[in-house]
Simulated assay, not measured.
Amino acid sequence: MTGKVLTLFLVAAALAAGLAMYYLQVYAFYEDVPENDAEIVLMRAGEDTAEPIPFETFEGIDADSSPIRYRACFSTEVSLEAARERFEAYPDAAPRVAPGWFSCFDAEAIGEMIADGRAGVFLSEANIEYGIDRVVAITEDGFGYVWHEINDCGEKSYDGTPLGEDCPPRPES
């Protein structure tokens, strides 16, 4: 009888721990980004100047637990063609998967639009945190998506590769 009780206790504890970890990863650390706190800017091509773009219907989430958890969705009057002419493109960007409950951000669909040219990705802010860039995708149907990308210096920093001369020194923590 003692073995059954112990087994039941271990299974219940493992299940509770698993559910707690799932909740913490998917729900607990995220906070809504209020629309009145949001500003969407894009870097002008060939310049070090950011330009705010008009937007509506903003939804955003962020978490302090990781610099790459930021996601946002919005609609804009800026056309994809105008954005391609005016703003700095961000090559090889791939949207990161958002929690399932944040339904406006479908990373797979956004990635498909980028791959087939129905969306373009542009630099919003370089090194928003060391090694992390904020990027914005604008689609041909007037929607926009924001997420954070690990840049080259960030990848080198996180995998232990020497940074080289192209990367700024890492800030002291």
Rank of each mutant, 00 (worst) to 15 (best):
I110A: 03
E129P: 00
A137E: 03
I114Q: 03
A107W: 07
A109F: 04
P99E: 10
V135W: 04
G131Y: 03
I132W: 09
V97C: 00
I110P: 11
E108I: 12
I128F: 08
G111F: 05
G131A: 04
F122G: 02
A98Y: 06
V136E: 06
Y130V: 10
I138L: 15
A107Y: 07
D133F: 01
I114Y: 02
A115N: 07
A137T: 05
A115E: 15
P95N: 05
A115V: 01
S103E: 15
S124K: 03
V135Y: 04
R96V: 14
D133R: 00
A126N: 09
A94V: 15
P99L: 07
G120P: 10
A107C: 08
A94S: 14
R96N: 14
A109E: 15
E108T: 15
I110D: 06
G111N: 13
D106V: 05
S103T: 15
E129W: 12
G111S: 12
I138K: 00
P95C: 03
G120F: 06
V135R: 01
A94R: 11
V135C: 01
M113W: 13
G111V: 07
P95Y: 08
A94Q: 14
R96Q: 14
A109N: 11
A107P: 10
I128S: 07
V121C: 10
A115K: 06
N127P: 07
D116V: 04
S103Y: 12
N127G: 13
W101G: 02
E129N: 12
F122Q: 03
P95G: 03
I132K: 07
V135P: 04
A126G: 11
V97Y: 05
P95D: 02
G111K: 02
G117P: 09
L123G: 08
P99M: 04
E140G: 14
R134A: 12
F102Q: 01
R134V: 13
A107V: 10
D116S: 08
D116H: 08
F122R: 02
A115P: 01
S124H: 11
G100L: 11
R96G: 15
R96P: 06
E129F: 11
E125Q: 15
D133L: 00
A109P: 10
I128L: 08
S103D: 14
A107L: 07
A98V: 09
G100N: 13
V97A: 14
M113N: 14
P95A: 13
E108W: 07
I114L: 15
A126Y: 11
G100Y: 09
V135E: 04
A94C: 04
V135A: 01
D116C: 00
W101Y: 08
F122V: 05
F122C: 02
D116K: 00
G100R: 10
I138Y: 01
N127R: 10
A107G: 08
S103G: 13
D141Q: 07
I128M: 04
G111A: 12
A98H: 06
V135I: 14
D116P: 03
D133E: 06
A98D: 09
A115T: 11
I128R: 10
A137G: 09
A107E: 12
V135N: 03
D141M: 00
N127F: 06
E140T: 09
W101M: 04
R118F: 06
V121D: 04
R134T: 15
V121H: 01
I128G: 01
D133Q: 01
G100T: 12
